[in-house]
Amino acid sequence: MKNKIKFLILMFIVIYSNAFSQINKENNCFSINLLIDSFINNLIDKEANLNENYLIIKSLKDKDGNYNIDFALSIGNLDTLKVTSSEKEMKLRYGNIKILLIGKTNEDLIFLKKSIKKTKNIFSNKDISKNNTNFYDEDYVWSTFFDNKKELINFYIPEEKEVAYKIFNSLKNKINISPKFKTLDCSCW
């Protein structure tokens, strides 16, 4: 009888600890890797050369705890770039892509760094001789807005409607979308 009680207590402890440890892990699992991958692959499809350029990811947290995260490709040497004195910056690698993280505060940078998981992806251009430079300006920026629960509220992709929806539809079942999400914003040319 004593052995049975010990066994039941032990089983209860094991089940209880496993259940709560899994719940805690899932609550802290916010990642923007899918958005980064989709952004980079979209640029590769448009023949933007990734070899000598870098990705900029900018995050700003508002007073309600919501995050605006922008994705852009920039041309030039990341090592010599300086951001404005009012912004914080951090450089890292994502597979073979150089990334510049920019935030208004150190908290913004820490949030971004935690949101980017390591990847083994290697991104390469189909034809390195081509370099479509239309993506190196401030006009081609994917902009996302997440609420304080890390659910997507708004998503802007500067593409024609059909292309923007194709990109969004490939992502929508893989990311948390808020019930407040209205529609995808795009450049409806």
Rank of each mutant, 00 (worst) to 15 (best):
N3R: 07
N3W: 11
N3S: 05
K4R: 14
K6C: 09
F7N: 06
L10R: 04
M11V: 15
Y16D: 14
S21F: 15
N27Y: 11
N27C: 05
I32Y: 00
N33K: 11
L34D: 14
S38H: 08
N41G: 04
I44L: 09
K46R: 14
E47T: 13
N51F: 10
N53R: 09
I56C: 10
I57Q: 03
S59P: 00
L60K: 14
D64N: 08
N68F: 01
I69E: 00
F71P: 01
F71G: 01
A72C: 11
S74G: 05
L78N: 08
D79P: 05
T80H: 09
L81V: 07
K82L: 07
S86M: 13
E89V: 02
L92R: 13
R93C: 08
K98C: 05
L100P: 02
G103D: 01
K104H: 04
T105D: 10
D108T: 01
I110S: 08
F111E: 00
K114I: 05
I116R: 01
K118G: 10
N121C: 04
I122L: 14
S124N: 08
N125A: 07
S129G: 11
Y136R: 12
D137M: 14
V141T: 12
N148S: 09
K150F: 08
E151I: 00
N154F: 03
N154C: 06
N154W: 03
F155V: 09
Y156V: 10
K161N: 15
F168N: 05
F168C: 03
L171Y: 10
K172Y: 04
N173H: 11
N173L: 12
I175E: 00
I177P: 00
I177E: 05
P179F: 05
K180D: 06
F181T: 01
D185F: 10
S187E: 13
